[in-house]
Structures are given as structure tokens and as C-alpha cells.
Write a protein that binds this DNA or RNA. Structure first.
Length: 510
RNA sequence: GGCGGUGUAGCUCAGCGGUAGAGCACACGGUUCAUACCCGUGGGGUCACAGGUUCGAAUCCUGUCACCGCUACCA
């Protein structure tokens, strides 16, 4: 079971356009997926959209559209955003897909048959926007404590899921598996929340119809969260192709924002226990992004679309910035100043310039032909020795989802290469025929270092990794390369032809 | 109110019992292959504050202040 490395993003709610917060999760998931593929794992990387619920129905009604048309019109914005960010998802699930609604119905029927779902009545306050029931004590100034919108008094018949029945099992699982919910601070919050007592969850609605009908009572539609969580199994053919399902499930990693951790860490495991399915191996809640020190919100008008930044900096610089600047588990602040600063200092000056200077010298001194290296000296050995260390560190940091530290480790190689070139000073011996072998060795070593660097960069910046790889004269595709083998010294063949090109990251004015 | 976290160089943060660290910014030196880039060196911190434990505390304990998260409750 679960031979495939299965990584997921949340499915994004179609009422909002994708923004840098949405993309943050997806970019991180993509780096994980690409890194695992680079290591030779079979990977299944899933993202998608969450399309049911009252909010969608209302948004559609405001535009005189039916909900399906409205959702259909929103989905391309997500797909396009993932395309321009070079996201390598293997599938895109929509909760309005037939394959999803079928699975959701099969799943809920199974729980009903088991007696884990019962009919009850709810009377109380309800926030339409958040689709959540509220205690009167939670009401703040007559509004929802979360979104501040007015609340409604409702009385309706609902089906309930016996969450309370599984509370102890979920708690035990979280306590016995320290890696199940991360980071630790979030795990502690989840534990204390469960300990404070869980009540059964209302999982159906009758006040509107935009949802998946309950197979055992067509007057009800499924509560949007119950529906949404099931995307993780509907996309991999639960119930219809169990062979495939078992190859992929359980998920190795659910990446979520901190605001939806509770659904993933409590309700989802309880649902899986009820269905007698294995639990995901790990749920990681990342932090939120502020923009120039302020919470990102429509009312403040500071919501940033990824496209805006990609148009200016390119997809790879975008990806690099968001993975390098922030510590994944905690909140971070996006600012134009730090984006520009990292772009110029780390991408243009450090990496781009390194690539230029090495390739230019090979072109200039050896007509673009990869030279045959001779005996390694102390500086060559020093450079070569750090590569296994960096590989090891990269692996540890990627396992911890510490993308910023992983990239920092990769940049150790960038700096080491720049230092190597300086110390070796190939330009000082370029015109001395008696130093030909020495120059050959320096140029080969620089190129080979650059080639390996391309490989390590690839999960984070796929286009840049590919370009550098090809420019160093590698004819094999980087997509076929695997670490650690491809990171072994000496794969670059003397006699190959290197390629120069436009600067990878042209410096931008401050 | 309860539980938890954070407070370290101008900025962002790492360190979490053994002589204060990184990157950026700043200053100086080297170099000229390269995207006016790279490499090296340096200045800069009573590690929030006050007590305590210890041979020794940024690191452990207690208290205070500030900010943050989760949660509860009163009106």
C-alpha cells in the first residue's frame, strides 16, 4: 500500500481568485513533488478546486448564473496560475467531477450503513459565509466571530457524523505519532482542542441545494467540508479502482494552511477511521503571508495575484523567493523590497553571474568545448568534497519541509563555485600555453560544479535548472536525471559543446 | 480566564548549559573571467527586564513587561 509518494495541496475554494497565499502552498507542494521525483520516487501530486456550498451558490446567483457555470468560469484561473508557475501536478480534481461526487456518495453511505451518521436537529446561529454553526456565546456584536458578517438563526434537520465516537482514537493517533501533525506548535493546539471535547458534526444542509445529494435522503446535500476532504481519495479512484487506490493511498503529505488544519487533523482522520481506511502519514500546516506588514484582504485592496509577480520576475524567481524567504511553518511577510533584494543579490549576482562567467570563459578559452580535466589539486578536491555534504543537508531539510534552509544549503555550492573560480583565476593563465592542462582542469571543474548545481536547483527552479544543465553541454534530459547518481562527479563528458545564452536573471534597478 | 509561543547586531532570523552567529545593509581591501559582478576582511549586540539554580545561563527555573496563536467565558 502507498508505494507512490502522494502529496496534496488543499482544493481551493472557487469563490476567491488565486493569490500569493494560495500559490504558496502549491509552489511548496511542487518543490516536494519534484524533489521526490528527482530522487527516483514515483509521485502523485494532486491539487484541485472546491466548488460546492452556499457561498458559491450565492456568488453565482448574484451574477445570474447557475453555480456550475460560475465554477466553470473560475477553474481556468487556477489552472492558468499553476501553468505559469510551472506546477507539475499529476491531476486536478474538481468536487463537481462525476468521479468525485460518486465517491463522496459511496463514502457517506458506508458511514451511514455503519451507524456513524444519524439524523438530528440543529437550532441556533449560522454563518452563511463560513457555513458554520455558532453558539450564541460566540457571536460578536451580532456577527460571526470569524468573518464579522451577520449571522442567521436557523432551525434545520441535519445528519450528524459521530465525531465524538472517534475523538479518543484520533487523539491517541496524534499523540503516538509526533510527525502526524506538524509543526509541533500546531499539533499542541490540535491536541488541546480535542481534549476540550468534541461534539458530533453536522454534515448535511437542507437550506440550499448546491451540493452533493445524500444517497439516503435526497432532501439533503453534503456539508461542503465533508465533501471537500474526500477529494484526496476520489482523485485516486477509491471505490472504483481499488488496485490503483491502494498503490497511492495513504497520502504521504497533506499540505494545508493553518486555518484549515482542524478539518484535516481531526475530522478527516475520524472519517477515515470510520471508513476503516489508513490515515495520511503527515499533515503539515504552513503559516500565512502578510503583505508589506498587513494582512492580505480584499477590503485593504492588497491582494496580489501571482501573475503580477511572474510577469515581472519570471516563474523561477517567484518560486525561489517564496521558498527561500520564509520559514514554511510560520507566518511570513511578503515585501517588494525583499523580493527585489533576493532577486538581485542571490539570483542575478550569485547564481546568474556564476553561470555567465563560467560559460563565457569556456567559450572564450576553449571555443565552447568541454575540456579534458587533468589531476585534481587541493582546490578541486575541496570543492568536490562539499557536494556530498550539501546533498545530505538538502535531503534532511527537504524532509523537514525547511525549504529556506534547503536553498541555503544549495547556495553553499553557489558560493563555493564562485570562490573556486576566484581562487583559481583561470583568466590569469589563459594566454600561457604551458598552463594549458591547468586551465583545462579549472574549466572542467567549474562546469561540472555548475552541472551538479543545476540538478540541485531543479526542484525549486525547474526552468533554470534545465537551462544551466543544457548550457553545460549535457545532452541527457535533466528530467531523466536522478540523485544521488547524477550528482556523482564526472558525468560531464569532455568534448561536449557548451551553450551560452541570455543572462538567466538580468539585474533589476533598485 | 486557561493553555502555548515569541522577544538575540540597523533589518530578517539561527543558536537553546561551556569564550555571542548567518544573510542583507554599511565600511575597507583584492580581482577584472563575468549580469558594475565575485572573493576576502571589518565595525556593530549589558541575547526584553528583574531575581534564582549552576564552576559556568542567550540557553534551565520564577516573576514582570510587550507582542502573537489556540481556547473559554462574562457582559
Amino acid at each position: 500500500m502507498g508505494e507512490v509518494f502522494y502529496v496534496t495541496t488543499p482544493i481551493y475554494y472557487v469563490n476567491d481568485m488565486p493569490h500569493i497565499g494560495t500559490a504558496y502552498t502549491t509552489v511548496a507542494a511542487d518543490a516536494v513533488a519534484r524533489y521526490q521525483r528527482l530522487k527516483g520516487r514515483r509521485v502523485f501530486f494532486l491539487t484541485g478546486t472546491d466548488e460546492h456550498g452556499q457561498k458559491v451558490a450565492q456568488a453565482a446567483a448574484e451574477r445570474n448564473q447557475n453555480p456550475q457555470d460560475w465554477a466553470d468560469s473560475m477553474v481556468p484561473h487556477f489552472k492558468e496560475t499553476w501553468r505559469i508557475l510551472n506546477i507539475s501536478n499529476d491531476d486536478f480534481i474538481r468536487t463537481t467531477d462525476n468521479r468525485h461526487t460518486k465517491v463522496a456518495q459511496v463514502f457517506i453511505q458506508k458511514l451511514k450503513d455503519k451507524g456513524d451518521i444519524y439524523l438530528g436537529t440543529y437550532e441556533g446561529w449560522y454563518c452563511v459565509y463560513d457555513e458554520s454553526f455558532l453558539l450564541s456565546s460566540q457571536i460578536v456584536d451580532g456577527g460571526c466571530p470569524e468573518c464579522r458578517r451577520p449571522v442567521e438563526w436557523v432551525k434545520e434537520e441535519n445528519y450528524f457524523f459521530r465525531l465524538s465516537k472517534y475523538a479518543d482514537r484520533v487523539l491517541k493517533h496524534i499523540e503516538e505519532n509526533p510527525d502526524f501533525v506538524q509543526p509541533e506548535s500546531r499539533r499542541n493546539e490540535v491536541i488541546s482542542f480535542i481534549k476540550s471535547g468534541l461534539s458530533d458534526q453536522s454534515i448535511s444542509r437542507t437550506s440550499f441545494t448546491w451540493g452533493i445529494p445524500l444517497p439516503f435522503d435526497a432532501r439533503h446535500v453534503m456539508y461542503v467540508w465533508f465533501d471537500a476532504l474526500l477529494n484526496y481519495i476520489s482523485a485516486i479512484d477509491f471505490g472504483s479502482n481499488m488496485k490503483r487506490f491502494e498503490e497511492i493511498w495513504p497520502a504521504d503529505l497533506h499540505l494545508v494552511g493553518k486555518e484549515i488544519l482542524r478539518f484535516h487533523a481531526i475530522i478527516w482522520p475520524a472519517m477515515l477511521f470510520a471508513a476503516e481506511l489508513p490515515l495520511p502519514k503527515r499533515i503539515f500546516a504552513h503559516g500565512w503571508l502578510t503583505v508589506e506588514g498587513q494582512k492580505m484582504s480584499k477590503s485593504l485592496g492588497n491582494v496580489i495575484a501571482p501573475k503580477e509577480l511572474v510577469d515581472e520576475y519570471g516563474a523561477d524567481a517567484y518560486r525561489y523567493y517564496f521558498l527561500r524567504e520564509f520559514s514554511f511553518g510560520i507566518d511570513g511577510n511578503f515585501s517588494r523590497r525583499t523580493l527585489l533584494g533576493r532577486y538581485n543579490a542571490e539570483l542575478a549576482n550569485d547564481l546568474g553571474n556564476l553561470s555567465s562567467r563560467v560559460l563565457t570563459m569556456v567559450m572564450k578559452y576553449r571555443d565552447g568545448i568541454v575540456p579534458e580535466p587533468k589531476a585534481s589539486g587541493a582546490e578541486e578536491n575541496r570543492l568536490r568534497e562539499i557536494i556530498p555534504e550539501i546533498l545530505a543537508k538538502l535531503d534532511v531539510k527537504m524532509a523537514a519541509l525547511a525549504f529556506n534552509e534547503a536553498l541555503s544549503a544549495v547556495w553553499d555550492l553557489v558560493h563555493a563555485l564562485n570562490r573556486y573560480v576566484d581562487v583559481s583565476a583561470p583568466w590569469s593563465i589563459a594566454s600561457d600555453p604551458s598552463k594549458k592542462k591547468e586551465l583545462d582542469t579549472i574549466l572542467y571543474t567549474s562546469l561540472e560544479g555548475l552541472r551538479i548545481l543545476a540538478l540541485l536547483i531543479y526542484p525549486f527552479m525547474p526552468e533554470t535548472g534545465r537551462k544551466i544543465w543544457e548550457r553545460t553541454g549535457m545532452s541527457e534530459k535533466i528530467t531523466q536525471a536522478r540523485i544521488p547518481e547524477a550528482a556523482n562527479w564526472g558525468a560531464l563528458r569532455p568534448g561536449s559543446k557548451i551553450v551560452t545564452g541570455e543572462p538567466l536573471f538580468p539585474r533589476k534597478p533598485e
